[in-house]
Write a protein that binds this DNA or RNA. Structure first.
Lengths: 156, 156
DNA sequence: CACATACCTGACTTATTTGTCAGGTACTGG
DNA sequence: CCAGTACCTGACAAATAAGTCAGGTATGTG
């Protein structure tokens, strides 16, 4: 379970935009410098984000990028999805088909409930954290413990 | 946040071993057939798992692989870690350093608490599910909702 | 309207992950 | 002690992700 470069750098770039309180667009060059990334790479990442409508560009002198909505109304989850993000359960099962066209387990998969639970949870966590919350210093995220159990009639 | 092929197929292979109730080793060929994977690929995956000591091989005729402990004493988390698994917080911060040697954010990173919370949680979920629980039909995993908040003095 | 600024975008290179191949080693049975 | 079975292992090939390059387009200023 890996965090991709797209996700990490994409979130970091959009956090830079969220920091921009005066409403003026922020240049790619500035973002690249602040994050220690190349201009070309930041352009590519921001282009991806702008296609999803989360950010928009302003061309010409004094141009740059800015959020299309206040940062309190944009969740991390939305950004993650725009960046490729966490797969849905269908995507997971459709992705690992081995040598076959479809997964050999069909709907009798022991692993599927695990992936579904984890990914659903991660989605729900990310959907509840707006960008604004990341800017307020050390964010505290508390998560109550889960329980896992098989149907009682089969347990033993 | 992607599930890797190693994790998916590694877990599926070890589930096949966990199904083997008579204590006899299971051949690579059988696993490959049941999972729709090539023999060579399954060999590679099982070799990785055997290096970590979770499974062991029996050579020669009637040989194969088996778990080194009862499946009730092996957690998914342990298997995931053997397969590359979920990164620790240090690994995440050390991985995305852009053009620099180290991440430009040092310890003032807005994103770090998010990754730490999520990965800690995922670890704790996986560590609590033993392989035996996966075999008992449809596993139910319930997770109570999390809360996220910034320190009150900075909120607004 | 010319020019500088700064975004736009597809093609390309490089790195990493995924999956295969080939030849080797250990064990068992006759 | 020979032959067949089945694991062992490094090197290679293919696919995907990460990151760069080059030339283009829109906008504001004098």
């Amino acid at each position: 379970m890996k965090i991709t470069a797209q996700e990490e750098y994409g979130l970091r770039c959009i956090i830079q935009l969220a920091r921009q309180t005066n409403g003026e667009p922020l240049m790619v060059r500035d973002i690249a410098e602040r994050e220690g990334l190349s201009i070309a790479y930041v352009e590519k990442i921001l282009w991806t984000l702008s296609r999803s409508g989360i950010i928009e560009s302003v061309r010409g002198p004094k141009g740059g990028y800015r959020l299309t909505r206040p940062c309190s109304e944009i969740s991390i989850g939305e950004v993650m999805r725009a960046l490729g993000g966490i797969p849905s359960q269908e995507e997971i099962c459709g992705q690992f088909t081995g040598n076959q066209e479809t997964c050999v387990h069909h709907d009798k998969c022991d692993l599927q409930p695990v992936w579904v639970s984890i990914t659903d949870f991660v989605h729900s966590v990310f959907d509840r954290i707006p960008l604004s919350q990341l800017l307020q210093g050390k964010l505290e995220v508390k998560m109550v413990q889960m329980t896992a159990k098989a149907p009682a009639n089969l347990a033993g």
